[in-house]
Nucleic acid binder design. Structure first.
Length: 675
RNA sequence: GCCUGUGUAGCAUAGCUGGUAGUGCAUCGGAUUUGUAAUCCGAAGGUCGGGGGUUCGAGUCCCUCCGCAGGCUCCA
């Protein structure tokens, strides 16, 4: 028998007989209770049962890593399929991968409902308890096809994903097996702590023209405690959902009768939006932007030139046709379809709610002869745009049909791209820093080198892509390059954040554009006296005010920094006779621009505090005998902490300062200024 | 748009197998004047998402449309 050397993670090298399994090596190194659910041989994931035949390094995979959790989830998906098959023998399993927060499995079967999940979950636990060994079996192509002859979906995968003539593996537990590369946990007892969470539908291979499948989602954790913790966390997360908080804090309203995805900003929410807008406007002026205003509609011709019509027609509100023309066409018996064709062909004109601001800004650029001395020209507008998002996709503030972008378009020379992209990025960073948002992802979208759908010549693309990379690098946060993610007109940098339930939303974006200057024949006169074409940069650091506010509400869980809080101080009197002083305090605060609400109702103070807590003011200002007599205030923070005897003048000064400095959270209670 | 759920006063909820709507908070009126998370009494508020159907009778069953939620698909 030959001997092999196995290197462990801590660097020790042990000698074993060839054929020893990973599990045995790990048990030897860590003891029986190692808790590993899979292994890595020379960095490659495999089952614990995998025999080792030659010198290598071996390490165990625990559930404390993403990789470990993925394996656990993947195995749970198999268990789900096994359970479903035992209850619904006619169901055909298709695919069942792990995902970020759990796992799912898609089945071709008759629709089932949420109430059917319970028995399935029960079955899963029953199967888990039986502690079946999960076995990896290698099969050749013919055997594979034979094993899955009854399941066209699996056959399709075998056909497409597995190279002709080569084999693959199945994983078997009890008499159930699935086509899979693995690795998996060693036995089903690891999968006791599962919870099926929801049911939905999905298309086979994500193609809407193909079969609709039943998708079952679930969670799995290594222990009962961990499962409980995860469920608790989800429960907690729901409480900070911006849709709920938007209602509780009276920030916005969406009305059926107004329309899906159309936001009504109530007074309190409008304050937040306005404060953000003022904040960004300040930095725009600092960076040399010019503010512009443009209308909410434009002629179809404008969008024909820009290329947005009729190409992106289905994601726009339908065009507006002039009344006279409409009447004439109607008298002539023109059908809707014919009307649509006439608009497409340009035979009749109309107007469109603007789906984006760029064409309007382009026209401002083109309204004058531009010289290289004018560049970069930076045109900024909080521009409202309208897009016909699919009804099923609309959600809260994060996906809407009318929204205001903090948009700007920079018209630059080729040489200015890098610096200007950097400037855009800097703006994003200032905003994120000030708001304490550090949980975001940066995505640099590059072109797909094999495709020819991109406009502009390759050399200029290389330069622009380098500029984007360099800008992303300058942020000092994690960023990733994604080939093929560029727009057809230029590379881009996106900022992506997650909402409370783990969905990703794109916020800010910076995009280099070679296309629109071309389509609109934009020009400038260079220092060489020749006519040149500028390059455009589109950028929106917040993305849209709606989505950004939605994300912000969840980020702060409704507890905004003082400068963003709709009503910063709620003044609460103890008795009716403190009313006069309350008015004085309110006036004094309002005089320096602080937002105040006074409650001098005859409720008792406990009741008032309870009521006002719901709106999360930065401070409650309690006024009673002591305060009135000494011209002081007592403060109550959101967490219930209190501080008394603060001279009114000191409070006003400190509060004003806290607002001006945009301090991340209210800090006057227990602040260092206090004894 | 598709799938599965879901829709009762401003908000949160009760209403079993069909017999014609309760409760809490908020609101309004009165009493109370209170020192840090609910003072008492009273009143008002609902065509039970819209429309249609089954039935002697529908919040409850069926159809349809709309909204919402979670997914899918899409996202300039």
């Amino acid at each position: 028998m030959s001997l092999i050397n196995v290197t462990l993670p801590d660097g020790t090298v042990n000698e074993y007989a060839a054929g020893i399994t990973c599990a045995e090596v790990i048990t030897d190194a860590l003891g029986k209770k190692h808790g590993c659910l899979a292994a890595r041989i020379d960095g490659e994931e495999c089952d614990l049962s995998r025999p080792i035949e030659s010198d290598c390094s071996v390490e165990g995979i625990l559930t404390d890593s993403d990789e470990g959790m993925y394996i656990l989830r993947h195995s749970a998906a198999h268990l789900l399929a096994q359970a479903v098959m035992s209850i619904y023998p006619d169901a055909k399993p298709t695919i069942g991968p792990p995902v970020d927060r759990g796992f799912y499995y898609d089945f071709a079967m008759e629709p089932i409902s949420e109430s059917d999940l319970k028995p399935i979950q029960k079955k899963m636990q029953e199967l888990a308890r039986k502690n079946f060994t999960i076995e990896r079996i290698e099969l050749d192509e013919a055997q594979l096809k034979d094993h899955f002859s009854h399941n066209p979906y699996k056959l399709e995968i075998i056909q497409d994903k597995i190279e002709d003539g080569s084999g693959s593996t199945i994983y078997k537990q009890d008499d159930w097996y699935d086509l899979c590369l693995g690795p998996h946990v060693p036995n089903t007892s690891r999968l006791m702590n599962v919870k099926l969470t929801s049911i939905s539908s999905a298309y086979w291979r994500g193609d809407q023209d193909r079969e609709q499948l039943v998708r079952i989602y679930g969670l799995v954790e290594p222990s009962k405690e961990a499962l409980r913790a995860t469920l608790d966390r989800l429960e907690q997360a729901k409480k900070r959902d911006h849709r709920k908080l938007g209602k509780d804090l009276q920030l916005f309203h969406i009305d059926e009768e107004v329309g899906q995805g159309l936001i009504l900003w109530t007074p309190r929410g409008s304050i937040i939006r306005q404060e953000l807008q003022d904040f960004i406007s300040f930095h725009l002026r600092r960076q040399g932007y010019s503010q512009v205003f443009t209308p909410h509609v434009g002629k179809l011709d404008l969008y024909r030139t820009s290329g947005h019509f009729p190409y992106y027609q289905e994601s726009q509100y339908p065009p507006l046709v002039e009344r006279e023309l409409m009447k004439k066409l109607s008298d002539e018996g023109c059908t809707c379809g014919e009307l649509s064709n006439l608009m497409k062909s340009g035979d009749i004109d109309g107007y469109m709610l603007k789906p984006m601001n760029c064409p309007h800004h382009v026209k401002i650029y083109a309204s004058q002869m531009r010289s290289y001395r004018d560049l970069p020209l930076r045109l900024a507008e909080f521009g409202t745009v309208y897009r016909w998002e699919q009804s099923g996709e609309i959600s809260g503030l994060t996906r809407v049909r009318g929204f205001t972008q903090d948009d700007a378009h920079l018209f630059v020379t080729e040489d200015q791209i890098a610096e200007e992209v950097l400037g855009c990025i800097e703006l994003v960073q200032i905003i994120f820093d000030k708001l304490g948002m550090d949980d975001y992802r940066v995505r640099v979208g590059l072109r797909d080198l094999d495709s020819d759908k991109y406009v502009g010549d390759p050399e200029r693309w290389d330069k622009a892509e380098d500029a984007c990379r360099a800008a992303a690098e300058s942020l000092g946060v994690n960023w990733s390059e994604e080939q093929g993610e560029a727009a057809f007109y230029g590379p881009k940098i996106d900022f992506v954040v997650k909402d409370v339930i783990g969905r990703e939303w794109q916020l800010g974006t910076v995009q280099v554009d070679y296309n629109l200057p071309e389509r609109f024949h934009l020009e400038y006169k260079g220092s060489d006296g020749e006519i040149h074409r500028p390059v455009m940069i589109h950028r929106a650091p917040f993305g849209s005010m709606e989505r950004f506010c939605g994300v912000l509400i969840e980020h702060f869980a409704g507890k905004f920094p003082t400068w963003l809080t709709p009503t910063q101080c709620h003044i609460i009197t103890i008795r009716g006779e403190h009313q006069a002083y309350a008015t004085q305090v309110a006036d004094a605060l309002r005089n320096v621009g602080i937002r105040v609400e006074v409650d001098d109702s005859d409720n008792n103070i406990m009741k008032k505090i309870r009521n006002h807590r719901k709106l999360q003011p930065a401070y409650m200002v309690i006024l009673g005998d002591d305060e009135t007599e000494h011209r002081t205030v007592s403060l109550r923070a959101r967490n219930g902490d209190q501080v008394s005897d603060i001279p009114l003048d000191t409070f006003i000064k400190d509060l004003r300062n806290e607002i001006d400095e945009k301090v991340t959270q209210p800090s006057l209670v227990n602040s260092p200024n206090e004894e």
